[in-house]
Design a protein around this nucleic acid. Structure first.
Lengths: 122, 122
DNA sequence: GACTTATTTCAGTATTTCTATAATTATCGA
DNA sequence: TCGATAATTATAGAAATACTGAAATAAGTC
């Protein structure tokens, strides 16, 4: 990922309503939430919600799918992953000892040890 | 890390000159670079550079150390790590299968497999 | 102490971003 | 087709951000 591509992603994340929306979408899963429901949940007017969703979609953090007159938005896990990669690769100098190998734990923020051989998800 | 704390970090990253400065500081290592030298390298006027450095320092991405009349700025690897943690934990739902366990490779952007048992850096 | 260098602070301006209202497009059901 | 609902687009105003030049602060040199 290039610096040029990373900038709009960081910009998309640097706004409270958008970050809240993204976290909600991530928790919701790939099925997503309709724009109206999202706006109602976050207390945002429809055009405001639409504005922010567009920003995040352009940044590649979410994607949308039309279903009748609803538009469902869902987190784009690949996009999220790409910005994490960028941060780790370009901002930690590619050195594991600098930022450490990262394994996410189920219910916490501290990275546990690597899973045993043969049980790895990738 | 709380959402409230993450916002200023993303804001700090969402600016070309700041992101360039941070990447330069990361590559430079813990010794850091003086404010003036950084500004000259990036083609920024002193007050502009100072403004951006303050932003990043407040966000916890860099730290400063005074040496004579120079002020050296260096990447705060812990701060960078914290924002990666936040993204992984809060935006990937704590599910490794969603964003994958993350191990940085020395010279690349693609995460390789986990290192064999007994060779892990943490 | 006066002079120079390094950096920050201040004041002002230009630009961008966010939000709200009004208007538009698209889809559904009667 | 008509009316209602969901969402987006258009437009405008308010707020935040980025940059510039001038002044201030601090530390070294003569």
């Amino acid at each position: 990922m290039e610096t040029k591509d990373a900038l709009p992603v960081f910009a998309a994340l640097a706004q409270e309503n958008r970050l809240d929306a993204l976290r909600l979408l991530v928790r919701t899963g790939p099925r997503g939430i309709a724009a109206g429901a999202l706006g109602e949940t976050l207390g945002l007017a429809a055009p405001t919600m639409s504005f922010h969703l567009k920003e995040m979609a352009n940044a590649g953090l979410i994607n949308s799918r039309k279903e009748g007159r609803h538009v469902f938005y869902a987190a784009d896990y690949g996009g999220i992953r790409r910005i994490v990669d960028f941060l780790m690769a370009d901002c930690c100098q590619g050195d594991p000892r600098l930022c450490g190998p990262y394994i996410i734990k189920e219910n916490g923020h501290e990275p546990p040890a690597c899973p045993p051989e043969g049980q790895r998800s990738r």
